[in-house]
């Protein structure tokens, strides 16, 4: 591991799933993923207004759009897995109010992330985004493994593939900027 010098994820094996106090029903995992995607969308949308560099703006816009697309995929999956239409209480019913609305991929608070980026600049924003996406990639692989339903596994596998593509795009821009 010391020789790895590549992308790493942090946290215990159940990382990101801790908000559910040990329950791991598919509907709850889907709701968690939706909340994290929504937090990341808010984060990337905020970054759009913090920097002037065109390539960075375009990438953050693409990432925000991708998170929105992921949210829709997760709502469709929730409908299929639960057999219910997500109500007004989705996904808040599945998560503690303490975390709801201000947490993003990687488990970091959205507002803390934005404040940190404001203090540290574009390269730090790209590095933090890489870290978020790496943790998200890690979490979705775990979620894919935990799903019994083949369709659900495939949805999470698609998310894994897309997070991997986000990482490649972020790494490319980070390399250009360094």
């Amino acid at each position: 591991m010391n020789a790895w010098e590549g992308l790493v994820a942090e946290g215990p094996p159940e990382s990101g799933m801790a908000y559910f106090e040990g329950t791991e029903k598919p509907e709850e995992l889907i709701a968690l993923a939706w909340i994290l995607e929504d937090g990341s969308r808010k984060f990337y949308s905020s970054l759009l207004y913090l920097f002037d560099e065109r390539a960075a703006k375009e990438l953050f816009l693409n990432l925000a759009d991708a998170e929105e697309h992921h949210k829709k995929s997760l709502v469709d999956l929730y409908r299929k897995v639960s057999g219910k239409k997500p109500g007004d209480a989705f996904p808040q019913d599945f998560i503690s109010t303490e975390h709801s609305g201000d947490v993003m991929e990687g488990g970091m608070s959205v507002s803390e992330g934005i404040d940190w980026v404001k203090r540290n600049g574009l390269n730090a924003a790209l590095e933090l985004s890489v870290s978020l996406e790496a943790n998200s990639y890690d979490l979705y692989i775990k979620m894919s493994r935990s799903m019994q339903d083949e369709h659900a596994q495939n949805v999470f596998k698609t998310l894994v593939t897309e997070e991997k593509q986000h990482l490649e795009k972020l790494a490319e821009l980070l390399e250009k900027n360094l």
């Binding site: 591991m1 790895w4 590549g6 992308l7 790493v8 994820a9 942090e10 946290g11 215990p12 094996p13 990382s15 790496a134 943790n135 990639y137 890690d138 692989i141 775990k142 894994v160």
Partner: peptide
């Protein structure tokens, strides 16, 4: 593992 791990491990 908690400190850092290869994503997906």
């Amino acid at each position: 593992y908690e400190i850092k791990h290869i994503p997906g491990a």
